[in-house]
Write a protein that binds this DNA or RNA. Structure first.
Lengths: 367, 367
DNA sequence: TGAAGTGACCGTAACGGTTCAGAACCAATT
DNA sequence: AATTGGTTCTGAACCGTTACGGTCACTTCA
């Protein structure tokens, strides 16, 4: 190949300067400060660059000198690829991408596999800051991020002092949903929740595990439920709570089955995410139960698929969360840290919740 | 704040070395080659690093020295955020993320806004290679990427000599779909297609524009249709082809309306993407036409939403495309470039295509 | 006892830029 | 003639690492 004949090392600023008989500074200026040299010389520089195949200043070397990478890193709970399967995560990504785009900043997806504890990828990331999306309190990747001398914004979890955060009031939102169910007359309920810690537990959750949960969001949602139901005399410890490690519809279905087998008498199945709820919905119907006539099912998130299914749920502004996280990170002007943004949620009254047989009214006024 | 009291410059390899009274090399080795120094010294190095708040070797400086960034860049046709709204793009991203994750490589989303011709983001990207997803032939960002001295893989379009490519045979796939429609008896059809060039043209497409299209994929799909229909005597120039710049269901709907107004007699509406087809489907039904009894509608891509709608379409392996692109880029071992990967497609016979009233049989044999 | 390892560490030279304080030159003003 | 100001270009320092080719003391073995 003719190509491999002249394996001349790629041109650099210095070689260009030598070729032209000018200083490196001048070549650098030709790219970065056109006003610092005569148009004629600049033209010659660019011309020679083209001739020599010089692609312009090396981005890495520039980053080293300027101490700016022009990118923000994103750390996720899950596999990188998972993020593209979860509608809520996709919404978050879209919002974050929006903010980055506005700022002309790149978005680096850091390959932090939660299985392996390999933190090297975090150390290798050349970024000006990190956004951390929904990781457990004790995530080693998070620890590695916090060691890096760059600003960081956490979305959802964990809730750390000294670190900027964007999120919602999970406990209050779930409390509101619970109040709604309570007002409908539900007292005997079951719960399906997402993973509470980094270890897999596809089973019922003990009260201790609920309180010790390393995922702040799930802990808060359960606490919201517990608080609401306890206030109307429900013994929370007796409520079956099934946990699933994988966040899939299949998990929702199997968890629903597990709960229903433990207590077939429940009138409502409360799920801490829409994905789980959609799975539960399928399982419930597969068992011949009508929703909401025989049983109420609720979710959390407000994803499109939930809306289509008419799910009663809590809508949270996923896109806004991403955008807010990005803005917070990029507006490093405001130095009053740590800052916290709490976005509002909305109770979505779908068609999957209703009063249990023997309605609230009947309870109060008798048949 | 106590924090701002000691604004001591952040520790570096050198300052650590000085503190310890060893050489920089040794500190570097403590991180990168533990076998090159005694465990005891290594322990001391790491201990001192912790005490001084040294976060480990600076990734940018390391990248400069090793000439490795540990990330691949992704260049998209559209706004970054758009990628998270298009199911096909999401699938591609998932596949690409999968490949990157396997290799422990980061994925940098480059903010290349197609509106502005601002190529700086491409120059600023510290990456070991680029994946380019479906951009027009004359995209300035693509030109900037190709100038960079790093390997590049193009997915879908454009189809360049000297550059690795992953894609499908768009022309053949569309030809097969057309053959199917022809065998059903369709002769009078309309077409809805995606943007053919970087300039906005939300209108009918002239034959010249079809052939000069800067989007290779769309050009090929139209060519497949033209070829198939021409071979059964249809004058392709008379077929109404409506183009839309934005890739949304709303665009599909309006384009369908435009085509139907031009020629209400068409028996099939062929769309070059599922998104457009779903929009067209809505518009057609809004007009009181039954699908497929009154009119046939087809798509292209095979996204989940299309499957749910029972759309007759062509399924292409979007996730596989992403994965293949990533692998191609990362397996720089095989140096037999340029390489090309053409993945196979599948005709999906949904419920939106049928013989037109007055079927093929009736045409041949009479009533 | 001398040659040949071996393990632990170091010095120097890149890597490819950006930046800042001037130098050199020229024209215009005082 | 000296000063001022502006434009254009340069020299040297610096960014924080890692690669490479050593040195040096301490075994090991014939």
């Amino acid at each position: 190949m003719a190509r491999s004949m002249h394996v001349r090392r790629p041109a650099t600023l210095a070689s260009l300067a030598a070729e032209l008989g000018v200083s490196r500074t001048t070549v650098s200026n030709a790219y970065n400060r056109p006003d610092q040299l005569s148009p004629e010389l600049r033209r010659r520089v660019l011309e020679t660059a083209r001739r020599l195949g010089y692609p312009g200043p090396d981005p890495v070397a520039r980053s080293l000198r300027t101490r700016k990478a022009g990118a923000v890193g994103l750390l996720l709970t899950e596999n990188l690829s998972y993020a593209f399967r979860d509608p809520a995560a996709i919404g978050f990504l879209e919002g974050l991408a929006l903010a980055c785009e506005d700022a002309g900043t790149g978005l680096l997806l850091v390959p932090a596999n939660p299985e392996r504890e390999d933190v090297a990828a975090v150390h290798r990331a050349g970024v000006d800051g990190f956004v951390v999306y929904s990781v457990p309190d004790d995530d080693p990747h998070l620890a590695a991020v916090l060691e890096r001398p760059v600003p960081t914004v956490v979305c959802d979890q964990p809730d750390l002092d000294n670190v900027d955060r964007v999120g919602i009031d999970d406990q209050a939102a779930m409390h509101a949903l619970a109040q709604h169910l309570i007002s409908l007359g539900h007292r005997r309920v079951g719960v399906v929740c997402m993973r509470l810690a980094r270890d897999r537990n596809d089973d019922f959750v003990t009260p201790e595990r609920q309180q010790a949960a390393h995922f702040h969001v799930q802990r808060a949602r359960l606490a919201g439920l517990a608080q609401a139901f306890a206030s109307v005399g429900v013994e929370w410890a007796t409520v079956p709570v099934a946990e699933r490690f994988d966040h899939t519809m299949a998990s929702g279905a199997s968890a629903a089955a597990q709960v229903l087998e433990r207590d077939p008498q429940i009138t409502a199945l409360i799920c801490t995410s829409d994905i789980l709820a959609l799975g539960a919905l399928g399982e419930v119907q597969r068992r011949g139960l009508r929703v909401p006539a025989d049983i109420t099912v609720t979710g959390f998130d407000g994803i499109r698929e939930a809306e289509q299914a008419g799910l009663t749920t809590v809508r949270q502004p996923v896109l806004e969360k991403g955008r807010a996280a990005g803005k917070l990170l990029l507006d490093s002007a405001e130095r009053t840290r740590p800052r916290a943004v709490t976005l509002s949620t909305e109770l979505v009254l779908g068609a999957t919740a209703a009063s249990p047989r023997g309605t609230a009214e009947e309870r109060w006024f008798g048949p």
